[in-house]
Write a protein that binds this DNA or RNA. Structure first.
Lengths: 217, 217
DNA sequence: TAGATTGTTAATCGATTAACAATC
DNA sequence: TAGATTGTTAATCGATTAACAATC
């Protein structure tokens, strides 16, 4: 048991992916080692913050040397559990669902996509990427046979709540939510990770408008 | 000039969309007024935090009564600038690009989509949703004719950096980034709002693994 | 008027930054 | 050894929470 039992903030966790992304880039440029200072410069963070984060996650650095790029990358991936091979299913094969199935590098994230499901007879039975879209009955069977670690929710806004409730009833414990709606109560024990496009765009709009206020036209 | 010149934290700004989303829901249930307490319960936030946020954004509440739902919603939308009608173009009409064009409610976010562009001859000239996909030359013309407030970047990972640099050279000042890559330097004055699916999924994986550690199998 | 709930000030908590002894 | 850079402790800064006088 190597991991220190320190509370790690949500912000730190979310920075982790950022570190890994940059480290991969450095790896492909064959950079062997990097200091907290250099990495900070690249990411727009302070060296202090990086050292704090990394030391909380493990014991990766070498004084006077920095961090070995490949070993740090692997170490951080271990922390994230990229190697724990979580399973996922996708519910709702519309545009977003298709985009994820066809383009998203699930395996690089250590996630195995078991299947995709929809209620629209027009898409059930179709092949999307490597995957055959199945119907609601098959979804029910899937949930009984092998509960996935993650359910990717890509149904329409209207169906979001009902589908989420159904999934939770059937034992789903983690949802990656693309419905642009708040699903479930904030007190639900189910893990929900939201990808709210509209929140993201509205935030961008806010900052654009702020900028324009300062320097009008 | 009503807005108080207080610094508003990024976290507050990002909560704004959340408030608006819930208020719209309440509006459609014909709820007239709501207290910070009730709203907090619904969103999993404290009443204090909500009062802090809302009073920073404007003067919306009435002691002893709460907040008028429709007027608060409108007020917050004003703060976000939903009515300032920003323009956008979309570059890279792959799956994600298509999904956005066909399904994303741009107008509800106060954003007008002017056009979509791609270099693939297979898609140029095709109709996606209401929009005709144009080629690179047309993109160049568009940027000269009418610089959009927002550029939505949906090209492939490989093309991300070059495209971003090109866009910035041609005067783009805000990018909504769907490329799963860090584009531009953190010191660039260009506003970049990232939608990094992989970061989001990896974060979810981290919390799932944490949960599993505590309560193994 | 009495009850409710705001806006705001003060207190607490947590996260980021700075500093520096330890060490490669 | 001298120089560099870590991990960590202490200081600062900012955000959240609590409390309460003002007021509808």
């Amino acid at each position: 048991m190597k991991s220190k039992r320190i509370k790690i903030s949500d912000n730190s966790v979310r920075r982790l992916s950022k570190y890994i992304r940059k480290l991969k880039e450095l790896e492909s440029s064959e950079v062997e080692a990097i200091s907290s200072m250099e990495l900070g410069d690249m990411l727009g963070l302070t060296s202090s913050q990086i050292r704090q984060d990394l030391s909380a996650f493990g014991d990766f650095g070498l004084p006077g040397y920095g961090y070995g790029v490949p070993s740090l990358r692997r170490g951080l991936e271990d922390v994230l559990g990229v190697n724990s091979k979580l399973t996922a299913i996708l519910v709702g094969v519309g545009n977003i669902g298709k985009a994820l199935i066809e383009n998203f590098p699930f395996s690089k994230c250590g996630v195995q996509l078991l299947g995709a499901f929809d209620i629209d007879p027009g898409i059930v039975g179709e092949r999307v990427g490597e995957i055959m879209v199945q119907n609601r009955i098959a979804l029910d069977e899937q949930l009984t046979r092998e509960a996935p670690d993650i359910t990717i929710l890509c149904v329409t806004r209207d169906a979001a709540n009902d589908t989420a409730n159904y999934l939770v009833e059937r034992g789903v414990t983690a949802i990656w939510n693309f419905t642009n709606t708040e699903i479930l109560s904030p007190y639900s024990p189910v893990l929900v990770e939201n990808v709210h496009f509209s929140d993201s765009l509205q935030t961008l709009c806010y900052y654009i408008n702020e900028k324009n206020k300062k320097r009008p036209n």
